[in-house]
Amino acid sequence: MSTATLPSTSRPTMTQTTTASAGAPALNPAYIQIKDFSFYYGAAKVLHGLSLDIPEQQVTAFIGPSGCGKSTLLRNLNRMNDLVDGIRHEGDILVNGHSIYDPLIEVIALRKRIGMVFQKSNPFPKSIYENVVYSLRVAGRNGKAELDEVVERSLKGAALWDEVKDRLHESAFGLSGGQMQRLCIARAIANRPEILLMDEPCSALDPIATAKVEELIHELKKEFTIVIVTHNMQQAARVSDRTAFFYLGKLIEYDVTTNIFQNPANAQTEAYVSGRFG
């Protein structure tokens, strides 16, 4: 069977019109286009006809109460949900203009282009070093010099290098929770993905590590398109360019982040970001 990789040129232009106000950051072209997307776990419909464009080289935050479907949507972007039984979707998701459901697309190749940091850190039962280079080894890249370089760059990028540089070949399970999470970030960026999906990456981190990760996000968006799920409203306001507010599987409001946090258009959004929801 022949496979297709997604072309990395000829990016589509942003189609969604927005209510950007004066002084709002320029909107980059859409890199991910979610088109009337619905999703079911068995009989349960958890995402309802979502349509939104995620701009390239910017940070888009997904916010909303627990269970509203943020992780589900995020996991659909790299077809992680394919692994769950009884799932079904309607609508389409395009990355760089191409449907991720195109039968010619290799899911593994898709996931390689999309790094993911999960809600719970999930290091492999291997050394710190092997965790970082895992995706490169899978791709058959084994040159020691290259791998050493990737390990250092990725761990520095994830603000973990100084803490682990003398114990790279010890088990990743010896790390603290916050260190494990940063290791997962290092692993996600090791292969230089085009898109980085982060599901509450800082929920187990102390304020200093959180600040490091936020700085890292700021750095990474020069290269990557980033989608972050967070329950920390100040964090969403600090790190993202655009924010989408979801409730019960529906997209309630999607706008430039400053509008969402200074003057949201929707009363439900206002109640949620102010902590008055429920």
Partner: peptide, 9 residues
Amino acid sequence: RAPIATELR
């Protein structure tokens, strides 16, 4: 409280 939206205003 790090207020947001109307509260911040």
